[in-house]
């Protein structure tokens, strides 16, 4: 009997100790969840508030979001106002000081990123979905993902100092993987340096910059405005003139992208703007493999102009 009680007590204490160390991490999108899991390993329980296929402007608050945030130890956000439509209201009502900006668990993962396309004029006339702090789709550049990983490593180390060495090792392994993938991705896209493509929404700037591609037009006349016939006519002219090989769009905007692609003899790259929590784009490396393959299959080499 005594043995049984001691064993039970031992198990309970072990469970309690493990639970005490486990960090409940909530991320605003799946790339951050991927990084948190890769670095935190068994020490973290990660939940992504979005699936990765959403238009973050259209995301509405759901009851589960509020519940998860109210119980979280850590919140990882993309930042640069990517989550402006839903996160502020949730943070106010979740009543969890740990994960509010300034709290010990909050991390803005754009902190180290060199921001691109920061608007000089902050007016709605420049576009209803204008991001005043700059383009928030920096996760499409794998080198930015490296910076995000380092931030998360340091953040977890601060919250759980006993495990800092473990997080450093995990981050180093992740960076090695990024290096290895970057070699492959760079090699695949190297022949297309200077190649032109179009996008539906202002999203692929960081990707284009990393791999030396040119975005020559956007189907939206301004961020958040539906394409108009006159604007599309201009875009089609540019597409033909610039020898555009790819028209990139989210699945929700595939129709108009395919229409333009047909008109200019290009292919479409119908892709979400991040990895996803399930399905064919789950996991950042897997997602980016498919992004690179899609672009490599469609882009036209500049010398063929």
């Amino acid at each position: 009997m005594r043995f049984f009680i001691r064993s039970l007590l031992g198990v309970l204490l072990t469970v309690a100790a493990v639970s005490a160390q486990e960090l409940r991490v909530v991320t605003t999108q799946p790339d951050l969840a991927f990084l948190a899991e890769a670095i935190g390993g068994d020490d973290v329980r990660v939940y992504s508030l979005t699936k990765g296929t959403e238009d973050l402007h259209l995301q509405r608050t759901r009851p589960s979001m509020l519940v998860r945030l109210s119980r979280a130890d850590v919140l990882l956000e993309l930042g640069l106002d990517a989550e402006h439509a839903w996160l502020p209201a949730l943070l106010q009502r979740a009543r969890n000081r740990k994960i509010r900006p300034g709290g010990p668990g909050f991390l803005n993962c754009s902190a180290l990123v060199k921001v691109r396309r920061k608007p000089t004029a902050r007016t709605r006339a420049s576009g209803p979905d204008l991001h005043p702090r700059g383009n928030p789709h920096f996760n499409l550049d794998p080198e930015n993902v490296r910076l995000m990983a380092r931030l998360i490593r340091d953040h977890f180390s601060k919250l759980n100092p006993d495990r800092a060495a473990r997080y450093r090792k995990a981050c180093a392994r992740l960076e090695e993987e990024i290096d290895a993938h970057m070699k492959v991705w760079t090699k695949k896209l190297a022949p297309f340096k200077g190649a032109a493509f179009m996008e539906h929404h202002d999203a692929w700037t960081y990707f284009a910059h990393r791999f030396g591609l040119r975005i020559v037009a956007r189907l939206e006349p301004a961020p958040g405005l539906a394409p108009t016939p006159s604007h599309l006519a201009r875009v089609i002219k540019i597409g033909r003139r610039e020898h555009v090989g790819i028209v990139a769009a989210r699945p929700a905007n595939a129709d108009v992208a395919e229409k333009v692609a047909r008109a200019i003899g290009a292919k479409t790259a119908i892709l979400p703007l991040s990895s996803t929590t399930k399905g064919r784009y789950k996991g950042y490396f897997h997602y980016m493999d498919q992004v690179v393959d899609t672009f490599a299959a469609g882009l036209k080499k500049p010398e063929n102009r």
């Binding site: 180290l112 931030l151 340091d154 601060k158 800092a164």
Partner: peptide, 10 residues
């Protein structure tokens, strides 16, 4: 600083 747990990047 990395040893001490506080991040150099931070």
């Amino acid at each position: 600083t990395a040893e001490s747990g506080a991040g150099p990047l931070e």
